[in-house]
């Protein structure tokens, strides 16, 4: 199970050397770019940028392959859903209708719709490498510190970090509990009917919640006894100062951001429209 999830991978790259806060801000800026624009040229640019950065991070593709394919599967599902619920979204946006062929009923494939879906796919694809890098190149202990650095209260930042850290423990609890339940004859496998399975899963949930609550009580006791929450601010043992690299990266991504916004303005909208008759 562990190999499937992504976690911090220690590598010797300049991306790893940057502070967590820099990486977080860059990620936020880059995702804003791809989120805001539907301009194919910008998106392709961002995708290339993402792939290049990913290469630099020295993280190997196979190390994140599972998560990548997982997201890809969802992306495909998303595209299909968009087509089913709004088959002419592209036509509406780009103002022309070039029919390719008729599917069934009201569904006709149009070039505009395909182009629209291509843009959506690009949006995701452009963010995925960057998000994967952030997760694999940021040491978990720097994660909370970087959230705190960008202005989130350290209590919340720490809560997030602790929650992330306890996921494996809760997974282990879940496994033990479900084993015990199965031994008593509570079947969770496909042999059982779905309604029954859902009901059976519920009987695992209760002990899981109780054991998790117990964990929370212990950890909050331990934290309070060690002066967590004493002051409005706190220091971070692994917190690092911004170095030249960080400023450089921030500057570069900010320029990217401004450029992307500039393109949107010159397009007079978020969409790049190759169909418009000049």
């Amino acid at each position: 199970m562990q190999e499937l999830m992504i976690s911090y991978l220690k590598r010797d790259s300049f991306i790893h050397e940057m502070t967590g806060a820099t990486k977080l801000i860059c990620l936020v800026l880059c995702s804003s770019i791809t989120m805001l624009t539907y301009d194919t040229r910008v998106l392709i640019g961002m995708l290339v940028f993402g792939i290049v950065i990913f290469k630099f991070s020295k993280v190997k593709f196979r190390e994140v392959a599972f998560v990548f394919y997982f997201i890809l599967a969802f992306l495909l599902l998303n595209n299909v859903a968009i087509f089913i619920f709004s088959p002419y979204e592209g036509v509406k946006i780009y103002g022309t209708r070039t029919e390719l062929f008729k599917l069934i009923g009201p569904y006709t494939i149009t070039i505009e719709q395909l182009f629209y879906l291509l843009n959506i796919t690009l949006k995701y694809l452009a963010v995925i490498p960057l998000a994967l890098i952030f997760m694999t190149a940021t040491h978990p202990s720097e994660f909370a510190a970087s959230l705190n650095r960008i202005g989130i209260s350290y209590r919340i930042a720490y809560a997030v970090a602790i929650a992330l850290r306890y996921i494996p423990d809760v997974q282990r609890d879940y496994q033990d509990i479900s084993f015990a339940a199965q031994a008593r004859g509570i079947d969770l496998s496909k042999k059982e009917k779905l309604t029954k399975r859902i009901k059976n899963a519920a009987s695992i949930l209760m002990p899981l919640i109780f054991s998790s609550l117990q964990r929370i009580e212990t950890i909050s006791c331990a934290m309070e006894l060690r002066a967590f929450g004493k002051y409005k601010k706190r220091m971070w043992y692994s917190g690092r100062k911004f170095a030249k690299k960080d400023y450089l990266a921030l500057l570069m991504v900010s320029i990217l951001f401004i450029l992307a916004m500039g393109v949107s303005i010159s397009n007079q909208g978020r969409f790049y429209n190759p169909f418009r008759v000049q």
Partner: peptide, 13 residues
């Protein structure tokens, strides 16, 4: 952890 919460400077910590 405790020193972090006590806002002790990093080098001292």
């Amino acid at each position: 952890f405790k020193l972090e919460n006590e806002c002790v400077d990093q080098p001292v910590m």
